[in-house]
C-alpha cells in the first residue's frame, strides 16, 4: 500500500515541478500581487482630501498663513488650489472630498459624497469648544499596513487556487485521457490514489507557500506575530480542506470545461467573501453568515489572527474545528462519489 501511495505521490510531484509554467505561476503569482499592492499602498494614506482655495496678494498659498484650527486636523490631506474653478472641477468629479476658501469663509461639498459629509461635520466641530463629557483614554497598538493585512489573505488565496484547480483539473484530465482507467487496472485502491493526490498537492503548495512567505519576509520585512508552527498547522488544515473540496468537485466529471465552470463558480465567491481583499465588517449579516461555509474564510481569518495579532491555536479553535469538519465532509462525500472512469 505505502509503495503504491509513494509511487503515485512521486508521479504527481514530477508532473508538477517539471511543468515550468505551472511551477513559476504558483510562486510568482502571489509575489506579483504583494509587490503590486506594496507599491500602491506603501505610503501612509490620509482618510480625506480637502481642497483649499485662496490666492493671497503676495502670491503665497492660503495654507501658508491661515492657522485655522480645522487645517491642523490629522489624517486630512489638504491640497492647495489657485482658482475656485479648478477646485470645483476636482470636487465635482470626487477627486477631492471637500473644498474650502477660508478667505471668504465659504465651503463646497458634493452632496452624494459620504466623505464630504464627514469633513463638513469635522469643520463644524473645529469651531466649537464644548467639552463632550467623555473621558479620553489612550491605547497604543502596532500599526498594520494594508499590505501586511493582505499578505495572509494572498497566501491563502493562492493556496485555494492551487488546491482547487491543481487537484480538480488534473483528476478530470486523468479521467478524460484514460490515465485513471489505466491506474484502476493496477491493484490501486481509491483511497490510495486520493491520499497520494492530497499528500502530493499539500507538499507542493506548502513548499511554494513557504518560499513566497520567506521571500516577502526578506523583501518587505513582514513578521508573523504568532508562532510559525501554528501558522503551518493552520495552512496545512486549510490546504487539506481545500484539496478535499477539489477532489469532491472532480469526483465524477470528465469534462474540463464543466469542471472549470464549477471551480470558478465556487472559487470566485469564496475569494470575495473570505475577506482576502477587504473586510466584511459592516456587510449584511447574511453575507457574513454565508462566508463561513467557505474553508478559505476560516483559513484567512485564522492565519491573520496568528500573523497580525499573534493568536495561539486556542484562540482560533473555532476555525480549526470548522476546517476539520469541512475536510471530513468533503473527503467522505468525494471518496463515495469518486469514479475511475467516465460515466
Amino acid at each position: 500500500m505505502s509503495q503504491r501511495i509513494w509511487t503515485l505521490f512521486l508521479m504527481r510531484n514530477k508532473e508538477f515541478y517539471r511543468d515550468k509554467g505551472s511551477l513559476m505561476w504558483n510562486i510568482l503569482f502571489p509575489f506579483l500581487i504583494i509587490v503590486s499592492f506594496n507599491m500602491i499602498f506603501n505610503n501612509d494614506q490620509n482618510l480625506y482630501k480637502v481642497g483649499v482655495v485662496d490666492t493671497i496678494n503676495d502670491g503665497t498659498s492660503a495654507l501658508d498663513n491661515k492657522p485655522v484650527f480645522f487645517l491642523e486636523t490629522k489624517f486630512i490631506d489638504f491640497v492647495s488650489f489657485h482658482s475656485i474653478e479648478e477646485g470645483l472641477d476636482k470636487l465635482k468629479h470626487h477627486r477631492i472630498d471637500f473644498l474650502i476658501r477660508p478667505a471668504s469663509k465659504q465651503y463646497w461639498v458634493n452632496t452624494p459624497s459620504p466623505k464630504g459629509y464627514i469633513v463638513e461635520k469635522l469643520l463644524a466641530a473645529s469651531f466649537t469648544n464644548k467639552q463632550s463629557g467623555f473621558e479620553k483614554q489612550l491605547i497604543v497598538g502596532k500599526k498594520i499596513s494594508y499590505t501586511e493585512w493582505l499578505f495572509p489573505g494572498i497566501l491563502a488565496m493562492n493556496t485555494m487556487f492551487s488546491s482547487l484547480f491543481g487537484v480538480g483539473y488534473v483528476i478530470v484530465r486523468y479521467r478524460k485521457n484514460g490515465v485513471l482507467k489505466r491506474l484502476s487496472m493496477a491493484p490501486t485502491k481509491t483511497y490510495e490514489f486520493l491520499i497520494a493526490q492530497i499528500l502530493s498537492r499539500m507538499f507542493i503548495i506548502l513548499l511554494s507557500t513557504i518560499i513566497v512567505y520567506f521571500g516577502c519576509v526578506v523583501l518587505y520585512g513582514f513578521k508573523c506575530n504568532g508562532s510559525l508552527l501554528n501558522l503551518l498547522v493552520v495552512f496545512s488544515l486549510g490546504l487539506f480542506s481545500l484539496i478535499s473540496l477539489g477532489l469532491l468537485i472532480a469526483a465524477r466529471s470528465s469534462s474540463e470545461e464543466f469542471a472549470g465552470g464549477i471551480l470558478n463558480l465556487i472559487s470566485l465567491p469564496m475569494m470575495f467573501l473570505s475577506e482576502v481583499w477587504f473586510s466584511l465588517e459592516g456587510a449584511n449579516p447574511w453575507v457574513i453568515y454565508v462566508s463561513k461555509i467557505f474553508p478559505l474564510a476560516h483559513l484567512v481569518d485564522a492565519s491573520r489572527k496568528i500573523m497580525n495579532d499573534g493568536a495561539g491555536l486556542a484562540e482560533i479553535k473555532y476555525h480549526i474545528t470548522a476546517l476539520i469538519i469541512m475536510s471530513f465532509l468533503f473527503l467522505t462525500i468525494g471518496s463515495f462519489l469518486f469514479r475511475w472512469q467516465k460515466t
Binding site: 508521479m11 511543468d19 485521457n177
Partner: peptide
C-alpha cells in the same frame, strides 16, 4: 495477475 493495454490511454505528463 493480469495486464491490460487499452485502446486509448495517456500517461501522466512530464515523465
Amino acid at each position: 495477475e493480469v495486464g491490460v493495454q487499452f485502446q486509448h490511454t495517456e500517461f501522466p505528463h512530464f515523465l
